[in-house]
């Protein structure tokens, strides 16, 4: 790990102010992803601003009948919250499908959203990676790309976003609340948080540099069943090969794109009466493979109809 200085932020305003004033500073929440990447010298901030003890860990009912989840709430606390379990079961299912209990106990909601890809070329500093070292090329394009994206990729990057939680949050139509370096609060749909790679895969979100995620806000639960299904190489504690979150009429796919992938084509087809197999077929019309990840297309064409059938079972709704 390269040297850095450390401070513990006393409040959110002080945290963003410090981030604005300090070059190459990063926020530190749970640290489960950032510290791992710092050990590997993939991340090398000069300064860490510890936001882990900011009073942003509450889970509160909103006036609209939804839920506001503080960005510093641990993944475990969100998954275990009785309101989340009763009204947003897809979110609990997605969270407990990710990481290990020890990681979920430490990992924050904000950090989960901002975790980096697990692409092997991003992790191997001896290999080219446009995300880690812009302009160096993409080793995955013609390399070990079994876990790479099949939607929205570019010639510069075919990495996927690894979060399970974010897939459920997109299906639930969540918003994120953020605080800018100038101290201004704003909120926008979570679906607009992450970017597709394009020519700049090192820029992963639409956040202003130094902006801090302060909360995720869920609207009232949608009508209809909810379910999260994840396929991976091991039964537990493994990143996904593909996953799907269904919440009423909305659907999002995981581990298939640079961001949680809202399956808008499949949603529209289902809404107009198509069968689940036809609906996911419409979505997959836009999919493309790079070789070893081609199996994901077939996998999703089977996974999604099974998940839709499960979501339609009685008792799956909020």
């Amino acid at each position: 790990m390269r040297p850095f200085t450390y401070e513990r932020a006393t409040d959110a305003a002080a945290a963003v102010k410090s981030a604005a004033e300090t070059p190459n500073a990063k926020f530190l929440a749970g640290g489960t992803n950032l510290l791992d990447l710092m050990k590997l010298e993939i991340e090398h901030p000069n300064h860490l601003i510890d936001v882990g003890r900011l009073p942003l860990a509450k889970i509160e009912d909103t006036a609209e009948g939804g839920l506001r989840i503080g960005a510093m709430a641990s993944n475990s606390h969100v998954a275990a919250d009785p309101r989340v379990r009763a009204r947003y079961p897809v979110l609990t299912q997605a969270i407990v499908a990710g990481g290990s209990p020890q990681l979920r106990n430490k990992a924050s909601v904000g950090g989960n959203l901002l975790q980096r890809t697990r692409c092997a070329y991003f992790y191997d500093t001896s290999k080219p990676c446009n995300k880690r070292a812009p302009g160096s090329g993409c080793g995955a394009l013609e390399g070990l790309n079994r876990n790479s994206a099949i939607f929205g990729a570019s010639h510069a990057c075919i990495a996927t976003h690894p979060s399970d939680m974010a897939v459920a949050l997109v299906a639930l139509d969540a918003e994120v609340e953020v605080l800018s370096p100038a101290g201004q609060a704003r909120s926008f749909p979570l679906m607009e948080l992450h970017r597709l790679p394009g020519e700049t895969p090192d820029v992963e979100t639409h956040l202003i540099p130094g902006e801090l995620i302060t909360a995720v806000v869920l609207p009232p639960p949608p009508k209809g069943g909810q379910v999260y299904r994840k396929v991976r190489d091991r039964a537990s504690y493994s990143a996904g090969l593909a996953s799907v979150a269904i919440a009423g009429g909305r659907m999002a796919l995981g581990a298939v794109a640079h961001k949680p992938w809202r399956a808008a084509e499949a949603e529209a087809a289902l809404a107009s009466g198509a069968s689940p197999a036809e609906a996911i077929g419409a979505e997959l019309a836009a999919a493309s493979a790079n070789g070893r990840n081609g199996f994901k297309i077939n996998l999703i064409s089977r996974l999604v109809p099974a998940a839709v059938a499960e979501a339609r079972e009685p008792g799956r709704g909020a």
Partner: peptide, 19 residues
């Protein structure tokens, strides 16, 4: 490396002492 911090299990390798 699992230890209990305030009664909760975490990986002590992925946490800084100063935290």
């Amino acid at each position: 490396c699992t230890v209990l911090v305030n009664g909760v299990r975490i990986n002590s390798c992925l946490s800084l002492a100063v935290m």
